[in-house]
Write a protein that binds this DNA or RNA. Structure first.
Lengths: 341, 341
DNA sequence: TCACGGGTTGCAATCGTTTGCCACTATTTG
DNA sequence: CAAATAGTGGCAAACGATTGCAACCCGTGA
């Protein structure tokens, strides 16, 4: 665990190694990063000295010439949102496995921030993963042209992406609710600038229409737990018997507020969430939700990104991946109480 | 939002600016990063050109000479654990506010990983925040000597730290349980290599002794939700009427398992958690727990670290901060059912 | 014996920025 | 009026690694 290194204060450099091994720095460099180019005996000697000195290459210096930093930026629009925990986890795991490090950036739901930070830190990473980007299609496409990136939950022409097919799940969810006798269903909207939100809404409209039931739209609401209170009240006012919420955070917030108002779930109102975040299984009642392979999406995004970074890989690698979602029925949905007054 | 920049492909450099403004690169450099050193008119011209070109300094190159990268490493022992979400949030926020970026590192509960990663990436960050370090006191002190760091929830001589006074909260929690008539209480232990775990246990021992009640130790258990099942069974076997769990994750896991076994909380068994993580307020029943200012701890750690990084600040700035914890009573604790068979 | 070529190694430029030092000008001071 | 001083700006050397090119050694085939 304890490395020998750091003789007189600061870390050993290639020059130190070269001197101690009696070679030029160029040889030392090659021995360590381009082993074929140097005699086996010399290389071994250099490697030994490097180990003795506890050498580890200065990534800044390396980045300066090679242009590669070994870091990937992961942008989330809100570090506070448990959905992104899954993204952070998935990307972290996969990056680590590939020897990359993770630069975590919170854009605070602002496209300005997103763009500015990305440019400001441009030289600090090799590529970026944008989860839930708030950029316009045009801005995103331009960005994709100037730096390697993969978007999560955002489909735009010319931008490689990983999308979780929550809209597909919405269809299942509507079917589930209809089968339980619900005729008046609402979609509790999240931020209107969110691509996911809009694509979920479109799927909702289509599915309710297909089943011949009423589909209302409530909101927009901030995708936070606290906003659940307002959303719950809105749902009660709307006179629906079931809702599908933009995400679990909102749904859980609704659950809490409804409990405090004495409204029983699912007896009086059925609720379906999206994403199946941490907590969806142990809230009260446990939430029926669309289980999304969030962590897997993060891993896959990394894989895609690293593949385009690798010059050896086919340039026209797969551009877009879609991950399936399925409906996890727990206890927040039940038979319709019938039309309300 | 859209920066003008990037004429012929790649980003503008200081040299580009200098040429376009008709000055030497050194002047351009000073104009942008050491404004006092250059004539106001020249500076303004340079700044204008820089803006036109959408210049943003190459942080790698800057780091090479100045030794400052503008990044801080944040180490967590498990990205999966919601406790660290608070740390990630708090540090991210504060770092961003100070213009730093965050390098997120998962050590996977391994001291080897911790040490190796820190050394390997040494040149990529200016300082590090170690939350729940698994390093030995000695290794930690050595590390603190060679790089600026702040530890969270880890008190070691010579290492600046932010600790959350959960042990103090444990005393309150034991008092709470005793007042509810509990005489046989268990501490559900987390990893034995965790400093927090051991200091919580010591506080528990002291508090139970002071109240003259029996205090058992169960475990160790992995600090995960799934481990709650084993912990719950152990608690039932131990014949206690109340437990204090190492963390909320374990406590919530216990809640779930107990519900599935038909054991009523708090009627049959009272449970107290630690940390008050996301979800502790909406699980079933809502968890009585020690509310820890986790996010604040993250922010404070950043503040401390940045202060020692700043050469202008007093070198002997405060070395250790202790953040208070308080008991949040919800519904997982209640009167003792009396001694069990 | 000589030219050739493969295998190794070194030289030196380069990446983009910072910074110590010097030069030059204009202003102040004795 | 000479000299000290403050205010500006440029030159060039770092920082630590990579890499194109040239040099060298040695063995081989002619």
């Amino acid at each position: 665990m304890e490395s020998e290194g750091e003789r007189a204060g600061r870390p050993a450099t290639l020059a130190d190694i070269a001197m101690r091994a009696g070679v030029a720095t160029s040889t030392a460099s090659r021995a360590l990063s381009n082993p074929g180019r140097v005699n086996a005996a010399t290389r071994e000697r250099i490697e030994r000295v490097a180990a003795e000195l506890g050498y580890s290459p200065n990534s800044q210096a390396r980045a300066l010439t090679s242009g590669r930093t070994g870091a990937i930026a992961v942008l989330v629009s809100d570090v506070t949102n448990p959905f992104y925990f899954g993204i952070i986890r998935g990307t972290q795991r996969q990056l680590k496995a590939s020897g990359y490090s993770q630069l975590l950036i919170d854009t605070e739901e602002s496209d300005q921030n997103e763009d500015a930070l990305l440019h400001r830190l441009r030289s600090s990473f090799d590529g970026a993963i944008l989860s839930a980007s708030r950029l316009s299609d045009r801005a995103l496409a331009e960005l994709a042209a100037e730096l390697p990136l993969v978007a999560i939950n955002r489909q735009t022409r010319g931008v490689p992406s990983v999308v979780i097919d929550t809209p597909g799940g919405i269809v299942q969810a509507v079917g589930h609710l209809v089968s339980l006798g619900h005729h008046e269903i609402a979609y509790v909207s999240g931020p209107e600038t969110s691509w996911s939100n809009e694509s979920r809404w479109r799927a909702f409209v289509k599915a309710t229409a297909a089943h011949g039931v009423t589909g209302k739209r409530l909101g927009p609401f901030s995708p936070r737990q606290r906003a659940g209170a307002a959303a719950a009240d809105a749902a009660l006012n709307a006179g629906v018997t079931a809702v599908i919420a933009f995400n679990d955070l909102l749904a859980i917030g609704m659950l809490q507020h409804l409990a405090s108002r004495g409204v029983r779930v699912p007896h009086d109102l059925s609720i379906v969430g999206c994403d199946d975040i941490f907590g969806a299984d142990f809230c009260n009642p446990p939430l029926t939700t669309l289980t999304a392979p969030i962590e897997q999406a993060g891993r896959l995004a990394v894989t895609l990104l690293l593949a385009r970074l690798d010059p050896r890989s086919a340039p026209s690698a797969r551009q877009a991946a879609v991950l399936p979602t399925y409906l996890t029925v727990r206890s927040s949905t039940g038979r319709s109480p019938g039309p309300r007054a």
